[in-house]
């Protein structure tokens, strides 16, 4: 059944690695933006929750 699978070329693997790294950076940046933005918008009260 192996012959039914497409074997990626070296160029395709390289491009996929680069896209994965870029996506990881973008997602990490988004997490940081949401975290910092939440602190800036809500302030220290962000962590003050009634028990």
């Amino acid at each position: 059944m192996d012959k039914d699978f497409v074997k990626p070329t070296e160029a395709q693997l390289k491009a996929r690695r680069k896209r994965s790294v870029a996506l990881a950076i973008a997602l990490a940046a988004f997490v940081v933006i949401v975290y910092i933005g939440s602190l800036a918008k809500i302030g220290p009260g962000l962590f003050e929750r009634g028990m």
Binding site: Q12, A15, R16, K18, R19, V21, A22
Partner: peptide
Amino acid sequence: AYRLSEAAPGDF
């Protein structure tokens, strides 16, 4: 539809 992408981040 089925080909593997060679797009680099710069293309996006």
